[in-house]
Amino acid sequence: MTEPFSPPSANLDDRWRYNFGFLDENTKRMLRRALLKAVAVPGYQVPFGSREMPLPYGWGTGGIQLTAAVIGHEDVLKVIDQGADDTTNAVNIRRFFARVAGVATTTVTRDATLIQTRHRIPETPLAEGQIMVFQVPEPEPLRTLEASEVETRKLHAHQEYGLMHVKLYEDIARYGHIATSYDYPVMVNRRYLASPSPIPKFDNPKLHRSPALMLFGAGREKRLYAIPPYTEVESLAFEDHPFEAQHWSQACALCGSSDSYLDEIIADDAGVRQFVCSDTDHCRQQREAAQ
């Protein structure tokens, strides 16, 4: 499950060697300085000079640049895509860093020091010292409500978030409940409205006072932001319509877990449907524990 550290020189011809972690040192320093400001002002989106990466925008270029700026030889990297370690995006990003940084990789959440994620937070509780890196498509939670960056900056400066409350209220007026189920907006440290990236709102409570450091990178939009450990993260709601995460009447068909986030999948040509854990590492652990 855990691949050991191998120095890049051992498996790469010298002609194909990149700087450690792919990015050049100037770019890493620029990202590092931006990350320090992001940590100092939790939830505020810091602009940065996003670089061209060897994969298109939308495939995690923001997350990859942040990972490249923080990763070191001592790190053990886990990469997940919708909770799974074995999907295309996850496999390729993990292989990318094994190649350009030679770091050890793992699929086991508690063994990882650095976890890059596309749209899930692992079910295994995170620990102090771990760093989560989120791939963010749209860092601005107000963007669908206000197209202008000049305007959204002003709204953040004045902490004027009424628009978002109106949007949630319209959900209630139309559907009787808040229908936003992913990328559910949060208030960070009681000051900045932020996008938790398109994680299901099931994962929002895991952001609140997490012992791990959370870093968010949006490559196309050239923004990064952070939630330090033990920071208040409140999902927006109303007194009479409190925040509520999804829950299922089914349990996972593979491991029987009843408290994890479930994906609905079609199991055969007859259209038989199954609910299984989205977090493959959690599902495997549950099955191993049951045996």
């Binding site: 700087n19 972690g21 040192e25 590092r32 320090l36 940590v39 100092a40 450091l213 330090p228």
Partner: peptide, 19 residues
Amino acid sequence: HPVDDAQRNFRALLEALSR
């Protein structure tokens, strides 16, 4: 070791500022 030393010190710094 300019690359490794800067990375390791940055991680200590990132931890120091986030805690």
